[in-house]
C-alpha cells in the first residue's frame, strides 16, 4: 500500500539524487477538526518537478492539505503519498516555507540557514544565502532584516536541504507588491535550476498564474478546478493571454463559493 502505480518508482534518497522532484499523490484524503470537515475525499496527483499553485477561499483547507504533505498531520482517512511513500511524519526530502519566516531570533542569519544541517554546514549555508542574494548579511541578527529579506533567508534555509518537494504556505502574503514580484521571480528561477516539485498556496491569483504549471482550486474540501497554465516562461504580466488566464481563474474562484448552490 506504500506504492502507487501511477507514479514512477521511488528514487533512492541519496545526495546525488537530491534536487530532482518527487511525485505527489493524494488519494481520497479526509480530515475533520471536531464537527468541521475540512478535507472531503480530496484527490490530487502532481508529477515530479511540476509547479502547482493552490488557490481557494480562506479556511477552505489549503494549509491543512500542505501540512498533511509535510507530515505534520495524520489523515482521518485516505492517503498522502510522496514519492510513492505514505507520508506520516516529517521527511528529509520535503521542506516547508511558512507564511511567517519563522527565523530563530537567537541565531544569526547564517545560523538560521544552517538549522538542522549536520557536519560542515557553514559553506553550504553560505552558498544558499548567496543564491538568495543575502551572503553579506550572514552575520546579522534576524531582527535587523526587512520582511522580504527574512523570507529570502527562509527560502535559503529550505533550499540548503536540496528538497525534492518544497511546500509554500503563502510565504509572500505579507510582502509589498514589488518585493512580492521579485520573490516570485527568485522562486521561479531556483525552481527551474533545481527541479524540485513545488506546491504553492496563494491568495493572489496573478501570482498563481505567473508561477504555476497548474492552478488548483480547492472548494468544499475537494479539488474544484484543475487548470493547466501553458503560457511560456518567463511570463510577462500585462500581456493579453496572462490577463485572460487570470480573469478565468478569478471568475471561477468568485462564483461557486457556496457549497449548497452546487
Amino acid at each position: 500500500m506504500n506504492r502507487n502505480s501511477a507514479l514512477e518508482r521511488p528514487l533512492p534518497d541519496t545526495a546525488g539524487e537530491n534536487g530532482r522532484g518527487v511525485g505527489v499523490s493524494v488519494q481520497a484524503l479526509s480530515r475533520s477538526f471536531g464537527a468541521l470537515q475540512v478535507l472531503r475525499r480530496l484527490d490530487l496527483t502532481i508529477e515530479a518537478g511540476q509547479f502547482v499553485c493552490i488557490v481557494g477561499r480562506s479556511g477552505c483547507g489549503k494549509s491543512t492539505l500542505l501540512r498533511h504533505l509535510a507530515g505534520l498531520e495524520t489523515p482521518d482517512a485516505g492517503l498522502a503519498l510522496v514519492n510513492g511513500e505514505e507520508r506520516n511524519r516529517v521527511h528529509g526530502n520535503t521542506r516547508v516555507m511558512f507564511q511567517e519566516a519563522r527565523l530563530l531570533p537567537w541565531k544569526t542569519v547564517l545560523g538560521n540557514v544552517g538549522v538542522g544541517l549536520k557536519g560542515d554546514w557553514r559553506a553550504r549555508a553560505l552558498a544558499a544565502l548567496s543564491q538568495v542574494g543575502l551572503a553579506d548579511r550572514a552575520g546579522d541578527w534576524p531582527f535587523t532584516l526587512s520582511g522580504g529579506q527574512r523570507q529570502r533567508v527562509a527560502l535559503a534555509r529550505a533550499l540548503v536541504h536540496s528538497p525534492r518537494l518544497l511546500l509554500f504556505d503563502e510565504p509572500l502574503g505579507a510582502l509589498d507588491a514589488l518585493t512580492r514580484i521579485e520573490m516570485q521571480e527568485l522562486i521561479e528561477r531556483l525552481w527551474l535550476e533545481q527541479g524540485f516539485t513545488a506546491l504553492l498556496v496563494t491568495h493572489d491569483v496573478a501570482e498563481a498564474v505567473a508561477l504555476a504549471d497548474r492552478v488548483i482550486l480547492i472548494e468544499n474540501g475537494a479539488v474544484a478546478l484543475d487548470l493547466p497554465i501553458t503560457l511560456p516562461r518567463p511570463r510577462e504580466r500585462g500581456v493579453a493571454d496572462f490577463a485572460r488566464m487570470e480573469g478565468l481563474v478569478l471568475k471561477r474562484v468568485l462564483t461557486h463559493h457556496d457549497g449548497n448552490r452546487q
Binding site: 509535510a70 505534520l72 516529517v90 528529509g92 521542506r95 516547508v96 511558512f98 519563522r102 538549522v115 538542522g116 534555509r157 536541504h161
Partner: peptide
C-alpha cells in the same frame, strides 16, 4: 514546528 520540519 519549524524546527521539526527542518529535521530537529
Amino acid at each position: 514546528e519549524m524546527g521539526r520540519v527542518y529535521g530537529l
